[in-house]
Design a protein around this nucleic acid. Structure first.
Lengths: 179, 179
DNA sequence: ACCTGAACACCGTTCAAGT
DNA sequence: ACCTGAACACCGTTCAAGT
């Protein structure tokens, strides 16, 4: 005799995302997720194969969300700004998708590819189609590195970080445009 | 009656660094470290306060080592190349010092500052003293992001990654030099 | 002074037993 | 069909007891 479900995959992934941001990746435990959705830890295994798969789902949901935000940008400068803002709002999820580290589960490649569409389009308009990929990679690498360093207190020599962002962004967009 | 020591802090940090690289950060467990140096886990607490402090020591040793390597570079291009090579040789340690993530212990700031000396010097020669910090940050952010993406399979759209490195490096060094 | 086993509070995961 | 408690193999850490 079937009983009505007491939770859902969506609720589980949502709880996992909240925990990731509030407690860090280590705090995303099966027991903590289970408590949030109102079941016991073993029940989660009816919806996800294991903790690794759950983390993968969180990474994929994060990439989709970031991709949607980047789609709204009308210029590379705007896109870079949205990217940076996302990192500040969701530092743990940002780190999970960009620098998960060996051993941490990652999103399937198609999720990464879809999040890169906007930047490829805008980079192509500026640098020409045949240079689009390299130009996009240069800007992405710089922005990812910059925001990662910010989030990890890597800028410990003083100075104005916002000023360094503007300086770097202008330099790179100019370099990309000069074919 | 004192007994001769059966291990040392140096041996413990060395074992931790090996484990970090071979098993990942999660594999750097107190029990695994203890087994490597030939004692039981509780004995480690005579030399380190806890696992967090041990990881901090590993991060600091890594930053010192990277700093020494960067000191040998005679140009920003060489320095960037050394930085990238270090990331390829020691991916887990590289990630630990650059993008440790919330919750993972980090090196004390003076270790980071000392590792940045060479790049500040070379950036100053190219961009002028008053632009040195911003120029160094732009190059560091790009290189850190590029290598991080490489190590985390973030470049999943095909193309030649080495070519993208050369393109990006030339663009950025040129942009920095054009004040 | 250092090292150890035993203990405690946690994990992820499996599985038989409940509804 | 879903959920649960109990169990297992792991963690980090503390501490009394050994030498």
């Amino acid at each position: 005799m079937p009983t009505p479900d007491r939770t859902s995959l969506d609720a589980i992934v949502l709880a996992a995302r909240d925990l990731l941001e509030s407690e860090g990746l280590a705090g995303l435990s099966m027991q903590a997720v289970a408590a949030r959705v109102g079941v016991r830890a073993p029940s989660l295994y009816k919806r996800v194969a294991n903790r690794e798969e759950l983390i993968q789902f969180v990474a994929e949901a994060t990439l989709s969300e970031l991709g949607e935000r980047l789609d709204e940008a009308g210029s590379l400068e705007q896109l870079a700004g949205e990217f940076r803002a996302f990192g500040h709002e969701r530092p743990a999820a940002f780190q999970l998708i960009l620098t998960p580290g060996a051993g941490t589960p990652t999103a399937r490649p198609e999720f990464g590819a879809s999040a890169s569409q906007s930047i490829l389009r805008l980079a192509g308009e500026l640098a020409g189609e045949e240079r689009a990929l390299e130009a996009a990679r240069t800007l992405t690498a710089w922005a990812a590195g910059f925001v990662s360093m910010e989030l990890n207190s890597g800028f410990n020599l003083g100075g104005d970080v916002d000023e360094a962002w503007r300086f770097g962004l202008a330099s790179i967009v100019k370099a990309i445009g000069d074919e």
